[in-house]
Design a protein around this nucleic acid. Structure first.
Lengths: 226, 226
DNA sequence: TCAAAAGTGTTAATAGTACACCCATGA
DNA sequence: TCATGGGTGTACTATTAACACTTTTGA
């Protein structure tokens, strides 16, 4: 019964990745200064076309891997952008995903080859097509999800100080937090575990390093910082 | 520079609508008992293929209108379902939307022609493809959005009693609420306005009818029932 | 007269917020 | 010795949760 389908048109379908990183106390996005057509020379998200042999989710994973070399990254679908003229070249329906990566883990060489750069999220250049809209939706969604899920740890190194964790959440929520209240709340989370290791890079005195225990989270599961 | 696009495959893209209604104190979905191919005789969501001359969002609006006759309905994109084999006939990438409609407003004749029926959300039949997954995601998203946005009024008639409103929110949240606390919270919302009209259908004594004032909401904008 | 839904306040518990000083260390 | 970030507790305020009886009226 292929006739049922045949009367309908087909479309190019792409994926675009909003790649978040946290570095030097700031949220950043990994963006391409395109050294390829179309829109060469302009800034864009990393993207690619969905292929026959992969699901849309898998296409997003592949595209992220092509740029960063990373697998098993936390990714979430942001939404599908389907305006007729969104890509001036041809009609393309694009599915946006956001990804949270640790900035000390990605493949420098791949990123360099793609001419990609980390840009502070409050200092974004102009971007092609509807990529700004994708980013603002992604940011909104990520912030919303971060409110009651411990997804922020995907942006922190394996071992982190409480100051790093606080400045991450300040960056995500866009507001300052009280140090004592913040630490009080973290102290109630059994899945944020204090190690006996000390980080000396951030201060002279040194700060205890903590780690996130995902298994411990699934059992008790309460996360709320605001 | 069409060569850039040409090397990539194209796909059928469809939309599927999860249509919520609130009737007789229960949340319901408008589902098709398919009287057309493929999967004739089975239950499914209302769907359709995206066409060349419409955006994906517009396709969803069109499909909803084809079934209900309604325009300007509250709709939200739920997500895109892109597994390779999700439709056993052909590869189709589908974008799911949920819609909130007032059950006293839709076009009975159109619904009858499509062989569609209102089914209580806790008594759903088995559905084709990944439609159950679409529904559970839609329900989750709707519940989440209903937590701090006054979207529930899209499901209530223009005039409603506080008992109706409470039972709606009990259905959405899936939990019983305290009548006095509920009314206290509603009383703080200036955008829920008491009229001087009384509904006598629900009780012998009669209950005051209220209405939702969208303009008043946009100005003050706080909504929180839980 | 009675069944059935409408309507109405107070109190206790909990959660959230504001706030300031000492500590340890390397330069 | 001093500048820098690390670390800690308490009192107040706001929010949320628990709870029971009276009213109206049609059948």
């Amino acid at each position: 019964m292929t006739t049922y389908y045949n009367i309908n048109p087909k479309f190019y379908v792409s994926v675009d990745c909003i790649i978040f990183g946290f570095d030097e106390g700031e949220l950043k996005l990994l963006l391409l200064k395109r050294n390829f057509a179309p829109a060469m020379g302009e800034w864009s998200l990393m993207g690619g076309f969905v292929q026959q042999d992969e699901s849309v989710d898998d296409a997003a994973k592949r595209v992220l891997r092509e740029l960063t070399g990373l697998e098993n990254v936390y990714m979430q679908q942001v939404g599908t952008f389907g305006e007729i003229e969104r890509d001036p070249g041809e009609r393309v329906i694009s599915v946006a995903y956001y990804a949270l990566i640790k900035v000390d883990e990605y493949d420098r060489k791949l990123v360099e080859e793609h001419n990609a750069f980390w840009i502070k999220i409050d200092e974004l250049p102009s971007l092609i097509f509807d990529h700004p809209e994708m980013i603002s939706k992604a940011r909104e969604l990520m912030k919303h999800q971060a409110l009651d899920n411990p997804i922020g740890f995907n942006l922190l190194p394996e071992l982190f100080t409480l100051s790093q964790m606080q400045s991450l959440y300040e960056a995500i929520y866009g507001e300052q937090m009280d140090k004592r209240n913040f630490r009080k709340r973290v102290a109630t989370m059994e899945f944020v575990e204090k190690t006996d290791q000390i980080d000396k890079t951030g201060s002279k005195r040194g700060a205890f390093l903590y780690k996130y225990n995902d298994k411990a989270y699934r059992q008790d599961s309460k996360f709320k910082l605001v």
